[in-house]
Nucleic acid binder design. Structure first.
Lengths: 138, 138
DNA sequence: GAAAAACATGCAACTTAAGTGCAAATCTAT
DNA sequence: ATAGATTTGCACTTAAGTTGCATGTTTTTC
């Protein structure tokens, strides 16, 4: 359990009990989680605390928010290697319209996009909607 | 004004007064509009009516919804040519983090993306965040 | 052209995610 | 151990989105 503690400290987050648990929760999950998902996994803790915890994680660069078109924010850990944060980790997100789950396809980077003159790109989000492998088999 | 009426009829939408006005409003605007934006432009009409009108437009393929990460849905006309709807009009959206405006860059198509085995793509959204040309000059 | 059916509009209310204020609890450093 | 800072939990607020229903308007049918 000291491993997670190290990760949090590296991101300048004080390793409280809830934070350790939430990190573990997110790490053991392979799909992005809504605040409701997280809430369901932590009956004991308050919604606000979980909300502020995930926002702290986000601010410190531990997780990133994903907008998959459902209108509900989802969150996923920034990198599985738990190493230093990549400055431009512009992977794509896949949202399954059947099971409603969203995953980071970290191996699939966003190709270079040319913009009109005068436009400056700071960040990118590529969202692909469709049917995931699991739902495709059914 | 009969021109807009034709467009609506072509999309099987009955051309009521509000619908004509909203179409005109969206056409004369070069950035995507939130429901609040639309509301501000139509003091007379009710929020619900405007909401249902934009949803009707969306359902009939006249407008598309844009999620630019602000958490508030924006809408823009599907095609400027007012012709038949392109089945795969996968252009990209640019959201300016300074002026908060979002535009469709219809000339900039999304490049082909390869997905993992078993994944089926139905739709795509590419959102670029940065500074638009107007804000860049300031 | 009147009556019936279908659709559009406006008002009020509800739902839900997100966010804030504040006091109590916990942790950190001296 | 105590003072200061941070975290947590509860209650409340905000705002977007949505629905139910009654009224108004248009379209269709005879």
């Amino acid at each position: 359990m000291g491993e997670i503690e190290e990760v949090l400290k590296k991101h300048h987050i004080r390793p409280t009990a809830i934070r350790l648990l939430m990190y573990k929760y997110l790490r053991d999950r392979n799909v992005a989680a809504t605040l409701n998902d997280i809430e369901s996994g932590f009956d004991k803790s308050d919604r606000t605390t979980l909300y502020r915890t995930i926002k702290t994680f986000e601010k410190k660069g531990l997780v990133h928010q994903i907008n998959d078109g459902t209108g509900i924010a989802k969150y996923a850990l920034d990198d599985k290697t738990t190493g230093t944060t990549a400055l431009q980790d512009l992977h794509l997100h896949f949202h399954c319209i059947k099971c409603n789950e969203t995953v980071c396809l970290t191996d699939h980077k966003i190709p270079h996009i040319s913009l009109p003159k005068g436009y400056l790109s700071k960040d990118m989000n590529l969202l692909v909607k469709g049917v995931c492998d699991k739902c495709n088999l059914k």
